[in-house]
Design a protein around this nucleic acid. Structure first.
Length: 801
RNA sequence: GCGAGUAUGGCGGAAUUGGCAGACGCGCCAGACUUAGAAUCUGGUACCAACAGGUGUGUAGGUUCAAGUCCUAUUACUCGCACCA
């Protein structure tokens, strides 16, 4: 029986002997396996953490046994709102809360037997860590990539905090799921848009799952087209639009600008219906995300009376409308509308009775006026006629460039990163505001800029940081002129610390640099990074950005941080629903470990199904995993020094098991690896004996899944003076897996009639003779004409009559 | 609306990529051991049928000697994006 009490015995041995620690042995081949470090919340370790870590845990243990120098670290992403909210509620300082939570998490992780290198733990709230987060910020500032701007930001009124675009996807706050509003505010921004192209290109050099790559590409949202100027009639000014289809310029019948477009203010005195337009803008702003998206089909808008523009392609005068289907945040906030080609423009034109300019030709008279449906070439477009869309785009761009009213332009959907939170529990921004010198960075030697002690960390009512209250800390002197200055009171978002943590693991105690180049060169890139899908357009993109920036300034040796990325699937409650407190279907890993032992939890997590697919929890499945481990533990009763006779089937099954487990672990197909080990155990019980040598091999391959059970059995049956963690991964003998004879199905007209054994390596002709001579075939072919025989040795025999 | 993915027994899931569908586990049934239960062990378990046999991988077609696997259409669900000009 697998007695859960053996867990602690082996955990004590492992963690006391530091056997999982990465060595600084640069001659050895390295493996850097990384899992997304947890936020140490007060709730403790969740079953999802276990699922997320167990995948690479198996790989890390296997790589060690294969002789790699393995870095498999863990740390704490500890800045953030929940800790602060808890601190606000209880009055306990976030530092104390964080330390307690880290202690609890560490204990829980060790109880599952994770082989993390606990000596390299990092904590983003440790001032020796965030010193370097601040240092990177200074570098970003120095290169002009960190800037302060008054802008419309996403704001969560509930959390009282500014959010980045990535944190407010779908118009909902990442933290509280509340509605996000737009608010004008002065905040720090990071120019991630400067890196859009590099982030896109980098995806070609890494091994990411398809859907991860696609999601990042969509998020960056690259589009190519042109910016074109439309002259305002009777004014010395122009309206610039962005379009991906400059070839359709001859079909423009009106223009649309966003309600926030600056042109409205600029020509307020010329606009005859200004009141109406302002009222529309106010109304548009009030719309919630839901209204904007769900009611999208019902277009609204107002024509601007008093302003028209001239289409530079044909000199025609066109009206200008205001509508909220055009966004100020994308392109130029203004579009040229071509209802004949764009469904949105079409809907708008139809609703407001604007010209569609249709030419009767072929099937669809309303929508294909400028491209011939039959051959996809341009028509009714003067010098573009007869060209393909692609050619026409190029030639129109050439035309507008030569005439000086436009140019080719690439746009990205991704926006700059709002990099400021109005909270206490985050990294202070190392910048002071001086009346004389403006925004002045701290000297590197003055880092870290530590958080002041504060009694009250409640955020201000109107999006003010609680640090405003720390007057002694806020009032400082300017590093540049020595005059009076004030510190920045916003702190960095939680994503700051996690954007580079994988670098610090490589050299966690270095106080001269964030990590030494020598160590970085040895360990980078991260060979394998496993984490959640929810981070694809958040942490994963932020950290790639920071890493690429650090590469550009010569701090890290690789362009991309992660060579390979995988994701784990969700564990659902036993009711098939997402685990949540309110549903009461939450499984606590502690309970499973306490009742069934750590290896049972590990084995079950891996056996439950495909690793990156969601799977519901099943209590009986857990018992099944325990039963398997019990059967393994009882192998000692079958132990013999040597077999009396060589058994080919036995040899085959063992070698097959080693092969399959070796390959399946690497492909994260843990469920089939375990199935094969179960099959092997079933064979062993059938035979009733197992030799020491075979048991030894089996225990090693099972070890990454069930380290406690295998160490215990190793100690009892193999060698009491050594441990599996120091053993070597077994090899398999391919020739032992192959058999002399193989069984194939013999079909008549595609229906299986009987099974035939034949020798391996037999020719098709010989096999045909053997099949046709078989007595069992007679009843099916007697008196019938054989039309065709398909004989594939080792595969199939099919007789068509 | 656009894009990606999934669909196999009562359940979780397997199927050297076109070659015996349902590995392995759960559950269930029967038996052994037990005073009894638990645990353990043995056998059975896709469906229909008394048997012969037939039918089966969401649905409808197709290609092929042969289809869970390839093609066409279609339905349902999951995920992502969503006025991207």
């Amino acid at each position: 029986m697998y007695d859960k009490n053996i867990d602690k015995k082996w955990q004590d041995k492992w963690y006391a002997t530091d056997c999982f620690n990465a060595k600084e042995d640069k001659d050895k081949k390295k493996f850097y396996g990384l899992v997304e470090f947890p936020y140490p919340s007060g709730v403790g370790l969740h079953i999802g953490h276990v699922k997320a870590y167990i995948g690479l845990e198996v790989i890390a243990r296997k790589k060690r046994l294969e002789g790699y120098n393995v870095l498999f670290p863990i740390g704490w992403d500890a800045f953030g709102l929940p800790t602060e909210n808890y601190a606000i509620k209880t009055g306990i300082h976030p530092r104390v809360v964080t330390d307690n939570n880290i202690e609890r998490f560490t204990e829980q992780l060790k109880k599952v037997g994770f082989s993390f290198d606990f000596n390299r733990q990092i904590d983003t709230t440790d001032e020796n860590y965030y010193k370097w987060t601040q240092w990177i910020f200074l570098k970003l500032f120095e290169k002009g990539l960190a800037y302060k701007d008054i802008t419309e930001v996403n704001y969560c009124p509930n959390c009282k905090v500014v959010l980045s675009n990535e944190e407010s996807q779908g118009g909902k706050c990442d933290r509280c799921d509340g509605e996000v509003i737009q608010k004008e505010k002065e905040v720090w921004m990071l120019k991630i848009t400067d890196y859009a192209e590099k982030l896109l290109e980098g995806l070609n050099d890494v091994d990411f799952p398809e859907r991860v790559r696609v999601q990042q590409e969509n998020w960056i949202g690259k589009s190519t087209g042109a910016e074109v100027d439309f002259k305002l009639k009777d004014l010395d000014d122009k309206l610039t639009v962005y379009t991906t289809r400059p070839d359709t310029m001859f079909g423009v019948t009106f223009m649309v600008i966003a309600p926030e477009h600056p042109m409205i203010k600029k020509y307020a005195d010329r606009i005859e219906n200004l009141k109406e337009i302002e009222a529309y803008a106010v109304n548009a702003k009030k719309k919630t995300e839901f209204e904007r998206v769900q009611l999208a089909k019902d277009k609204t808008g107002v024509e601007i009376k008093g302003i028209t523009v001239i289409n530079p392609a044909n000199g025609k005068e066109v009206p200008v409308w205001v509508s909220d289907y055009v966004m100020m945040g994308y392109g130029t906030g203004a579009i040229m509308a071509v209802p004949a080609h764009d469904t949105r423009d079409y809907e708008f034109a139809k609703k407001f009775g604007i010209d569609i300019i249709q030419v009767i030709e072929g099937g669809n008279i309303e929508k294909e006026a400028y491209t011939d449906i039959a051959n996809g070439t341009m028509m009714n477009s003067e010098f573009l006629n007869g060209k393909s869309v692609k050619e026409a785009i190029a030639s129109m761009i050439e035309y507008v460039e030569s005439k000086g009213f436009g140019h080719a332009k690439t746009n990205y959907f991704m926006k700059d990163w709002a990099f400021a939170r109005q909270r206490y529990w985050g990294e202070p921004v190392p910048i002071v505001k001086c009346e004389k010198c403006g925004l002045v960075p701290l000297k590197e030697s003055d880092l870290p800029l530590t958080l002041p002690k504060l009694e009250n960390f409640k955020p201000g009512t109107d999006g003010e940081s609680p640090l405003v209250e720390a007057t002694e800390w806020v009032n400082t002197t300017c590093p540049c002129c020595g005059g009076a200055a004030k510190r920045e009171t916003d702190t960095m978002p939680q994503w700051a610390g996690s954007s580079w943590y994988f670098l610090r693991y490589i050299d966690p105690k270095n106080d001269l640099s964030l990590a030494s180049m020598e160590n970085l060169k040895y360990w980078l890139p991260v060979d394998w990074y496993n984490g959640g899908m929810e981070h694809v357009t958040r942490h994963l993109i932020y950290s790639r950005f920071w890493h690429r920036f650090l590469y550009d300034i010569g701090v890290v040796p690789t362009k991309e941080p992660y060579a390979k990325r995988t994701t784990q699937g969700l564990i659902l409650g036993s009711d098939g629903e997402k685990m949540s407190k309110s549903r009461g279907n939450v499984i606590n890993p502690d309970d499973i470990v306490n009742e069934y032992g750590a290896d049972t939890l590990r084995t079950y997590m891996l056996f439950i199904g495909e690793y990156d697919a969601a799977a519901p929890w099943n209590d009986n499945g857990v018992k099944g995993a325990k039963k398997f481990l019990d059967r393994v533990m009882r192998l000692d009763t079958l132990l013999v020094d040597k077999y009396e006779t060589v058994d080919e089937e036995y040899e085959r099954e063992l070698n097959k098991t080693i092969k399959k487990v070796t390959e399946d672990y690497e492909a994260m197909k843990y469920n089939t690896a375990i199935a094969q080990m179960m099959t092997f155990i079933n064979v062993v019980y059938k035979k009733g004996v197992i030799s020491k040598e075979d048991l030894k091999k089996f225990l090693i391959v099972l070890n990454p899944t069930a380290p406690h059970v295998t160490e215990e059995l190793w100690n009892r049956c193999i060698d009491a003076n050594s441990m599996i963690v120091d053993a070597t991964w077994p090899t398999y003998d391919e020739s032992k897996i192959k058999t002399n004879t193989v069984e194939i199905a013999v079909q008549v007209c595609g229906k299986v009639k009987f099974i035939l054994a034949h020798e391996v390596g037999i020719s098709a002709e010989d096999l045909t003779k053997q099949v046709l001579a078989d007595e069992r075939l007679k009843p099916f072919i007697d008196g019938k004409e054989i039309k065709k025989t398909i004989i594939v040795p080792g595969r199939i025999a099919n007789i068509v009559v």
